[in-house]
Write a protein that binds this DNA or RNA. Structure first.
Length: 349
DNA sequence: AATTCGGGGGA
DNA sequence: TCCCCAGAATT
């Protein structure tokens, strides 16, 4: 038996029952692939179900507001995926009459669709022979063939795409692509893979050479930066508060938060005045303040550690853009903010 | 070629 | 802690 036969046989006996495996609807396949980018099935599954329920077709998604889409995406991370999802839905619905492109080349033109996702949709929804290369494929192929080229180098990206293309089952590209990914996800795992009972173990180079734990090779990532965030949680006698939209580039674009002031260090309660309050929502306002958390809440992103303090600001009457605190739930917010909102009882004041 | 985008979970 | 996850876009 050759590589693809052993792999697809394993898949037939071991695949998980997942909702997007019961359809060839390009909208459903596309939605699942966007959600699953850099996201484990367990984490993405409830979001997939929620999106299908709220937006049964690409037209409902296209007609939704970006804020509503981001709210439904809240907690999943990489929010550019949600913004691009919405843009592409509008494009498909209004420019392409609701029809997704049906081939790799044209799928690649869609916002948020790169090499992996274009191959995935083309093969799974349209049976095009186009090999996917995701994190699972890198791991399976680097181990089986004993390839030490870094998977995130230009040479590695080309080599593994070419190798996967040479292995794909041209008679059933949809099954082969899903099989190799599923095999990587549940069998040829990063830690403690099931080599003893592996259908490919007789010919796996990494297993023979004891390289399982050192493959795949990956270039080291950049180091994490530390930032100090101070959120101003304003509350007035009318039970109103202030949320601001993050409009600039960077993390959490188009999500909402309490007014934010950054500092160069973690501030104590006595150092509140070190914040640049002149240019903040507190300008020309009488207020009392208190520190909600003495210890920094450290919110860890992949490339930033956010040392966070929440300052409770009580005022007589907030001006301008204040909203009722019971309306907060309508706004998409980062997990850091939603965790605070959950722990802080606005109604007690 | 490197960096920037989140958040959850495993060992 | 560190690493990984059905990667893409930007610099």
């Amino acid at each position: 038996m050759d590589f693809k036969t052993k792999l697809t046989n394993w898949y037939s006996n071991n695949k998980r029952d997942l909702p997007w495996r019961h359809t060839k609807n390009p909208y459903h396949i596309w939605l699942s692939e966007i959600i699953l980018q850099q996201t484990q099935v367990k984490q993405g599954l409830p979001y997939y179900k929620a999106f299908i329920k709220h937006y049964p077709t690409v037209f409902e998604l296209a007609n939704a507001s970006e804020q509503e889409v981001l709210k439904l995406w809240q907690g999943l991370g990489y929010y550019s995926r949600a913004r691009n999802l919405h843009k592409t839905a509008k494009h498909v619905a209004f420019e392409l009459n609701g029809n997704f492109p049906d081939n790799y080349k044209d799928l690649l033109k869609l916002k948020g669709v790169g090499d992996y996702t274009a191959s995935a949709i083309a093969s799974i929804a349209f049976n095009e022979v186009s090999a996917v290369v995701d994190g699972n494929v890198y791991r399976v192929l680097s181990r089986y063939f004993g390839i030490e080229t870094p998977i995130n180098s230009t040479a590695g990206i080309k080599k593994f795409k070419k190798l996967a293309s040479s292995l794909i089952d041209k008679g059933n590209p949809a099954m082969f692509n899903q099989a190799i990914m599923e095999f990587g996800a549940t069998h040829c795992k990063p830690k403690n893979p099931y080599c003893i009972v592996c259908p490919l173990n007789e010919s796996c180079v990494a297993l023979q050479k004891n390289l399982i734990d050192s493959l795949p090779v990956k270039l080291k990532k950049t180091k994490v930066k530390t930032k100090f965030f101070n959120f101003l949680v304003c509350i007035d006698k009318n039970n109103k508060t202030i949320l601001e939209k993050r409009t600039s580039k960077g993390i959490w674009q188009n999500l909402y938060q309490f007014p934010l002031l950054e500092s160069h260090k973690s501030l104590s309660s006595e150092e509140f005045h070190l914040l640049d309050l002149e240019d903040s929502v507190l300008k020309n306002l009488k207020y009392d303040y208190s520190l909600y958390n003495e210890e920094d809440i450290i919110h860890k992103l992949s490339h930033q550690h956010l040392h966070t303090k929440f300052w409770i600001i009580e005022a007589e009457k907030l001006t301008a853009k204040a909203i009722l605190t019971n309306e907060i739930k309508n706004y998409p917010v980062p997990v850091l903010i939603s965790d605070f909102i959950e722990s802080f009882n606005f109604n007690k004041l």
